[in-house]
Design a protein around this nucleic acid. Structure first.
Lengths: 360, 360
DNA sequence: CTGAAAGCGCTTACAG
DNA sequence: CTGAAAGCGCTTACAG
């Protein structure tokens, strides 16, 4: 009777299988160490008792939490459809983690300082083997903090502001926004559009330098592509391009304003590449209002909004981002999270994935 | 040197404070048991060593995981803005949990059967003290499963199909959709609107019975309110009302269709109460296209979409849903998750919260 | 290939 | 109010 209420332990399995608990442990963790016949006996006992190891005990003894931590933000954070993308990323991260028998612990933090405090506590309580950072930026103090604490981590987002993205000493995975926007732009060009505007986000763009933010990266994707397609480059081409690009915020209303400015200044506007689905929706609605139904609009993120309104967008392919992140943190075939050895794995630890152009 | 790499343990704290490890443990878990002077010594040692207890050890010994589990779905799941709401709920749940020193573990599951399998493993691995279920429905097998496994759980969502919501033997928290929609409808009436339509979701509504789904619940909120305001009820009033309600799916396009049907059949239509922001957006866009700018539209969920497009909506108040859920699972002031004792807490374990009408 | 012993870092139950 | 002992359920390190 009392036996029924207690979940079975490794001792019960050992007894039923007629082996020691150590052999049971080996069957579960290093099956190749155990003779097939013994292994089968143990596995049968595991099955008949419906045994699942107590994870706290395993963690305590092995000093591995088999968990990764990721921050979740409120929807009110900047970016109209941020909730979507974050939700998808968290979903894909859990899927990828579960495939590798890793748990995902979600935490919140209002400010960067709060996040660092919280990360410190999570690390010291031995409750995580690795951290996934998102929304990293130039001189992000979290990178330094985690580096100092010698904890494995990875950022979803390339290290903005670095000369050589591939020289950083922390691993990252990102979507190549410039390449995605370039592909969208080239697709429009190929379809015959010739006056392709860009509706982006206001950034602290320093002309000639490498991108320092997501918004700038995407803008450069459009600009470089048009320079290449429309002319030989040079000062004149740059000048005429600058009239085709407008910048604002991440909101539908700002997208509407950008659309109006483009309508005002570009006589034969026939397409607009947008930095996001939000901005794209603003443009689309404004063009509809102005009865300019022939102007083609593309977005970014492939949110349900782009599906519903039927405009082309770029899918971040977050499933692949998530599985790449874990492949870096755990090794291609590894089963535990460890610091990346940059001497040996420099290239593999920095992954730039191409977004998928979804034409509609 | 080797000391620097190892995080401090309860032994280190005991040594610095000049007490036993047991007293350190008491200071952290039952401070009132310890003499203030001793307590201060210990707390100072904790601070100077920057000590945080090893959670795996604590969990193993105390047989409490201090964690709750919640399922996260992909955005592609039905419901255009579902990702938003889920993301917000998860965010608020983490916030509420962290306030009570509880961790949130997120898991995924494709089907209900998979979810039950996964829950079984989570429970047996002693990795959760409680489960938060969402999207429960009539005869949900997960409820039975968790009941049988004797694990504390709570559903966000009332037990659809039960005669008496408050008689179920499992705790739940929900938003009172009917009351919210009723408030929106009454607000419109008070403002002078008299031909208030309803755009809802197709449901298996059985006339006269209590609501069996979210969509039906919301529909009834509109219907009851108009019956009360517009007349004495009775067969004639019901009939005239039925022409004012149209049903479809959870998509913008379906919302557009609903709007067209209402325009066709209701001559003086001046407002439409919608079952969701998604449907409301469809209606709004369709009315704009038809230049019926004077028809007032309301939504549900207060997503960023309703903010951006400036229509009235009902906020689910997920922060309160989350903190109520934990108050039920842990007791108003408790610090651990336990099964609710229904003999003692019947009322408190079933909480119906009113959504907040956000007028725009 | 298998097992007896040790121990991960805490909290519990109890004695004083 | 405080401490010495036991033990949570595993994995590790090692002996045979």
């Amino acid at each position: 009777m009392s036996k029924k209420t207690r979940p079975s332990s490794i001792l019960d399995v050992a007894e039923v299988a007629g082996v020691s608990i150590q052999t049971v442990s080996n069957v579960l963790n290093f099956p190749e160490r155990v003779r097939p016949r013994t292994r089968d006996q143990v596995l049968q006992a595991v099955k008949s008792l419906d045994y699942t190891p107590n994870l706290s005990a395993r963690r305590l003894r092995s000093k591995k939490s088999s968990s990764i931590s990721v921050r979740v933000d409120a929807n009110s954070s900047p970016g109209l459809f941020r909730g979507f993308i974050q939700n998808d990323f968290v979903y894909e991260l859990i899927e990828a983690a579960e495939n590798r028998h890793i748990k995902v612990i979600a935490y919140t933090a209002g400010t960067e300082k709060q996040e660092i405090d919280k990360l410190g506590r999570i690390i010291k309580s031995r409750d995580t083997d690795g951290i996934i950072l998102t929304s990293t930026h130039v001189d992000d103090p979290r990178l330094d903090f985690l580096e100092r604490n010698n904890v494995p981590f990875l950022s979803f987002g390339k290290p903005w502001g670095h000369e050589n993205l591939y020289s950083t000493t922390h691993p990252w995975v990102d979507i190549d926004g410039a390449a995605g926007i370039a592909e969208a732009t080239a697709m429009l060009w190929k379809k015959g559009y010739r006056n392709i505007g860009f509706a982006g986000w206001e950034t602290n763009n320093v002309p000639g330098e490498s991108a320092r933010s997501v918004g700038e990266d995407r803008y450069l994707g459009w600009k470089e592509t048009l320079l290449k397609l429309a002319g030989k480059g040079g000062r004149r081409a740059e000048l005429s391009l600058s009239a085709l690009a407008v910048f604002g915020e991440q909101s539908i209303e700002s997208g509407r304003q950008s659309a109006r400015r483009l309508l005002d200044t570009v006589p034969n506007l026939d397409a607009v590449v947008c930095v996001s689905d939000t901005v794209a929706l603003g443009c689309l609605l404004e063009f509809q209002r102005a009865s300019k139904h022939n102007i083609c609009v593309t977005g970014f993120d492939n949110t349900p909004i782009s599906k519903e309104f039927g405009f082309t967008s770029l899918d971040q392919n977050l499933a692949e981002v998530a599985s790449s992140a874990l492949a870096i943190l755990m090794g291609e075939k590894g089963n535990q999270i460890r610091k990346v050895d940059f001497a040996a794995e420099q290239t593999a630890a920095h992954v730039l994935l191409k977004p998928i152009l979804v034409v509609r």
